Amino acid sequence: MNKSNQVYVFNGQKSGLASAVFSSYRQAEFWIKRNYLSGILIEYPLNESCYDWAKAQGHFKERSAIDRAPIFIAKFVSAYQRNWHFANGQLVENIDG
């Protein structure tokens, strides 16, 4: 993703909703470490859905009507989005999409 066109969203462990959004990875990492948090930090495109981003990047192709269904699009997250797993404020896994 273009460095000025993404945000970093943190979801705490066992949380269904995000608890923080940052404009840089470094800001997010500092906050996570300072508070000894566990969860996942995911890079999201700014002003574009994950669904549209993945299609534009060639990471996803619609194959059936279900791939265009509102319920599918609303829950879509791409495996190609960069993400980092933290436990007690420490990076334990870095998955680059």
Rank of each mutant, 00 (worst) to 15 (best):
M1W: 04
M1S: 01
M1K: 01
K3D: 06
N5H: 09
N5W: 13
Q6M: 09
Q6W: 07
Q6V: 12
V7E: 13
V9R: 08
F10I: 13
F10Q: 11
G12C: 03
Q13F: 13
Q13W: 06
K14H: 05
K14D: 12
S15T: 14
S15W: 15
S15N: 07
G16W: 10
G16K: 06
G16Q: 10
S19G: 11
S19K: 03
V21Q: 08
V21H: 14
V21K: 12
F22G: 01
F22P: 08
S23K: 15
S24Q: 05
Y25M: 08
R26G: 07
R26W: 05
Q27R: 07
A28D: 03
F30D: 00
F30E: 07
W31K: 14
Y36L: 10
Y36C: 09
Y36H: 08
L37V: 12
L37N: 09
G39K: 02
G39M: 02
G39A: 11
G39T: 05
I40V: 14
E43N: 15
C50K: 00
C50W: 02
C50Y: 02
C50Q: 01
Y51N: 00
Y51F: 08
W53N: 00
K55H: 03
K55T: 02
K55V: 01
A56W: 09
Q57R: 15
H59K: 10
H59F: 11
F60G: 03
F60V: 04
F60R: 12
F60Y: 07
K61W: 04
E62S: 02
E62R: 01
R63Q: 05
S64L: 05
S64H: 12
R68E: 15
R68C: 11
A69Q: 09
P70T: 05
I71T: 13
I71K: 10
I73G: 04
I73E: 03
A74L: 03
K75P: 02
F76I: 14
F76T: 09
S78Q: 09
A79N: 12
R82A: 05
H85P: 10
A87R: 13
G89Q: 12
Q90F: 14
E93C: 11
